[in-house]
Design a binder for these strands. Structure first.
Length: 811
RNA sequence: GCCGAAGUGGCGGAAUGGCAGACGCGGCGGUCUCAAAAACCGUUGAGGGGUAACUCUCGUGCCGGUUCGAAUCCGGCCUUCGGCACCA
């Protein structure tokens, strides 16, 4: 009997040796083809739960497999280290965000090392270190230089008592979570990135292999719609503008307009409102401000609004159209105003009903009786009450009306997008300071590269209001203008953490390079990323931001590709108690316990065996002992003395070995790890039987065990390495080639032919693989178990699927 | 409301037009043991018939369709999960 399998000592022993030997060190100048396997780096929340392992283990297995297939694999790891939780910890517990974050990193790095991954820790990237955020800031100045970053007004949640911006989560029932003052919507000066400039390109996912649903989510988020901008004539005392322009996708309904609806924030509102409506309008606007954006946009909320007292003219029919303001109109979409056609739009319909505004039909439903509509009719139909367009199908009318408007100069076809510019400034401490200087003479000036990074001051006075301590740090604020040398003030906002994660995968390529954000040679070598794995929750945040960022720096000539991630794979989520794991819910499952109990390999294999990787599921450890048992069996199987009693079983053993190599290779290529592990189990079960009977020669036995170990190496790296060494093979198993299979050896000379009658299984016979169709059909009808089902029936057809089955169809 | 994914034994799941339930957990029976645990071996979808080897019927959320043949393809519905949600 071989020595017992002891996972604990093996984990430590090999992790130490691999580190000492720099086994997983990645070099750029390596003749092998490159493979960049990226996995989303963790946020430094404190500790990794089992869900993180579910993300990282299969990614590591896949990367290890590629390594064994002869690729020079870059599979790096780092930490997304800037963000709000660090600052909240500071406010709550008086611990400095930097201390909190770096402690968390130490713990998480320890955990990550216990997985036994192939991370090259020399390439670790931490976004909150000055050597990293220097370049995050540098990128920001580049974006500013290229007019992709700008300072402008954006609506935010504002607490007037605390004098602070609140995140949506910090607003409870319209009140500040700290002081319970009424929260107000306010337009504040913010920094934004012009992601909208890339809207069209972001909708296209050409040449990249991404999950369909992520592509759909991104396209919906960008939300491109084709429509027409229509000018309504305006003649209002004291207003210089002679028109109101609106965007519509339904110009065919323009003859049914019975009111205009402007967003409360629309710039014309104040000037259009007549004196007798002023009080009402102002009260309404004030009330709107009390809603958060989320509440205001809720479909639950009843649509309401007020009349301004002003009118404009529908140029197509000369009708006078009352101008209302309504909070269902968004100031940030289209032109901030809509032409309301209540008969053919659900929202306008509800509004018109409430305020008794007429609802004339201009698109006739198929069997319309001329009566008033009960609900808005939004489907296509025939145009009616629309002057020269009457009788035209509405789909055609869209174009016809648009062309007419263009001819008259009353409108033009255009496109509109749902996506907004990316609000990137945060009134917070724990982020990269936005490297901008406000000079009273020169205006906004970027901090030049030589003065970067703009260091985050260490001493910080954290206020219970959640305000950025930077705002009150005189030493930080006061500076000189890089252009005129005069006194100036620093920007005190910091950058959104998502800006840091836009380029971390570039930094991995040359993490210690100090002349630029990255060494262009290294990035040219490694990028784009061959496979990116991570959660789908980033579909319209990180993944969209990053695509924008890369396209932007491509256009600056910094990189020569526009899509950073060639293939994207979203793993599923491990849940506990039917919900996502999170500290606040207290349902996090700590992997450390399992690792110290059962060893990393068991936990690795178990996570992969749970089910399809993209599916995730409820965490349940009831089966993990089975995985432990299996690895034990493999240990004994490989290390116990094998005594052969002949070579009669060689043929079958060789065949099963090659079949398994084929199956396992195909599964790992497709990231089907659960069936890959199952195939390895089946194979080892079979080897157990061979060992029992001694039916194969020692030579074939050894070859098969070797193949099993090589295929097991990515999944159970410690166990495989130990057995490999004990069997006397050369260190390290992880530098070996993945086994190949010979297709001809996977085939059998005899096959099992399935015989069906009317599609129902009736018999199985073993026949030579070379059997002809005629023979097979004849044989099938001759079977004793088949005959009774043919008796008294007429055979109408016989289907033969070569190598598989015969189906006799009877009547 | 709209978009997307998924529904298979007691449980996780396998099979994506051809033997439903691979592999594992759990259960049951056994070996070992004074006994138990561990380990190992056998068995395990439901229902029926047979002393038995065995054998038949039903069965992949529900209803219908296509096909020689459907878990798999098509249409309709139900349920669960994820995303978006007044975008004119």
């Amino acid at each position: 009997m071989a020595e017992k399998y002891d996972s604990k000592t093996l984990d430590k022993k090999w992790q130490q040796k691999w580190a000492d030997d720099k086994l997983y060190e990645v070099k750029d100048n390596d003749p092998r083809p490159k493979w960049y396997a990226l996995t989303m780096f963790p946020y430094t929340s404190g500790d990794l739960h089992i869900g993180h392992w579910y993300n990282y283990v299969p990614a590591d297995v896949s990367a290890r497999y590629k390594r064994m297939r002869g690729f020079n694999v870059l599979h790096p790891m780092g930490f997304d280290a800037f963000g709000l939780p660090a600052e909240n910890a500071a406010i709550k517990r008086g611990i400095h965000p930097n201390t909190w974050t770096m402690q968390n990193i130490d713990n998480m790095r320890r955990q990550l090392k216990s997985i036994g991954g192939i991370y090259d820790w020399n390439r670790e990237v931490i976004t909150c270190l000055p050597e990293y955020y220097k370049w995050t800031q540098w990128f920001f100045t580049k974006l500013f230089e290229h007019d992709l970053a700008y300072h402008g007004k954006a609506p935010v949640n504002w607490c007037p008592k605390c004098q602070v911006v609140l995140a949506n989560e910090q607003v409870e029932n319209g009140k500040c979570w700290r002081c319970e003052s009424e929260v107000v919507r306010r337009d504040l000066e913010q920094w934004l990135l012009r992601i909208t400039r890339y809207a069209d390109e972001l909708m296209v996912h050409e040449g990249i292999d991404w999950p369909e649903r992520i592509k759909i989510m991104q396209r919906n988020w960008v939300g491109k719609s084709y429509g027409t901008e229509i000018s309504f004539a305006l003649d209002h005392p004291g207003v210089t503008e002679k028109e109101i322009r609106i965007f519509t996708t339904r110009p065919d309904t323009v003859y049914g307009v019975t009111f205009m609806a402007l967003a409360p924030e629309h710039p014309l509102v104040a000037r259009l409102t007549t004196p007798e409506h002023k009080a009402e309008v102002e009260a309404y606007i004030a009330r709107c401000r009390q809603f958060t954006e989320i509440e205001r946009l809720s479909t639950e909320k009843e649509k309401d609004g007020v009349f301004t007292g002003a009118y404009c003219i529908n140029r197509l029919n000369g009708k006078k159209v009352p101008i209302w303001i309504a909070d269902y109109v968004l100031s940030s979409y289209g032109t901030g105003g809509v032409m309301a056609v209540p008969a053919h739009d659900e929202r306008d319909f509800a509004f018109a009903k409430k305020y008794n505004i007429p609802i004339p039909v201009v698109i006739s439903p198929p069997d319309w009786d001329g009566k008033e509509l009960e609900v808005a009719y939004i489907e296509p139909g025939k145009m009616v009450n629309s002057a020269q367009f009457n009788g035209l199908p509405s789909e055609k009318g869209i174009e016809a009306v648009s062309i007419y408007l263009e001819e008259k100069g009353w409108g033009k076809r255009t496109v509109s997008y749902k996506i907004r510019d990316w609000l990137i400034s945060r009134q917070r401490y724990w982020g990269p300071p936005i490297p901008m200087i406000h000079c009273p003479k020169c205006g906004i000036v970027a901090v030049p590269e030589k003065d970067l990074p703009v260091m985050l001051p260490e001493t910080a006075d954290f206020r219970p209001t959640g305000e950025s301590p930077l705002k009150y740090n005189e030493k930080f604020i006061n500076t000189t203008c890089p252009r005129c040398g005069g006194p100036a003030k620093r920007e005190t906002d910091t950058l959104d953490g998502f800006m840091c994660s836009c380029w971390y995968f570039l930094r991995y390529c040359s993490p210690h390079y100090d002349k630029a954000a990255f060494d262009p040679k290294a990035v040219k070598h490694w990028l784009p990323v061959d496979i990116y794995t991570g959660g789908a929750e980033h579909a319209v945040m990180h993944l969209l931001y990053t695509r924008f960022f890369i396209k932007a720096i491509r256009d600056m000539g910094l990189v020569d590709f526009g899509e950073p991630f060639t293939k994207l794979f979203n793993q599923g989520i491990i849940i506990a108690d039917h919900q996502k794991m999170s500290k606040s819910k207290g349902n996090v499952v700590n992997p450390d316990v399992y690792v110290s109990d059962l060893g990393a390999d068991t936990v690795r294999a178990y996570l992969m065996f749970l089910g399809p990787w993209d599916q995730g599921g409820e965490w349940d450890d009831s089966g993990i002992s089975g995985m432990s048992r299996w690895l034990n069996r493999v240990w004994n199987l490989a290390l116990d003395e094998y005594s052969s009693k002949g070579s009669g079983g060689d043929e079958e053993l060789v065949r099963l070995t090659h079949q398994t190599i084929k199956k396992v290779t195909e599964d790992v290529e497709r990231l089907h790890f659960n069936t890959m592990v199952a195939a390895l189990m089946e194979f080892s079960n079979y080897l157990g039987k061979v060992k029992e009977s001694g039916s194969a020669s020692v030579k074939e036995w050894k070859t098969s065990v070797k193949a099993l170990l090589l295929m097991l190496a990515p999944t159970a790296p410690h166990l495989a390495e130990e057995i490999w060494q004990k069997l006397g093979y050369a260190y390290s198993i992880h530098n070996q080639r993945w086994p190949d299979w010979d297709e001809s050896l996977t085939k059998t000379e005899e096959i099992t032919l399935v015989i069906q009658v009317n599609g129902k299984l009736r018999e199985r016979v073993t026949v030579p693989a070379s059997i002809s169709a005629e023979e097979a059909k004849k044989l099938a009808a001759d079977q004793d178990k088949v005959k009774p089902f043919l008796e008294g029936k007429q055979v109408v057809n016989i289907i033969y699927v070569p190598g598989k089955l015969v189906n006799i169809v009877v009547k």
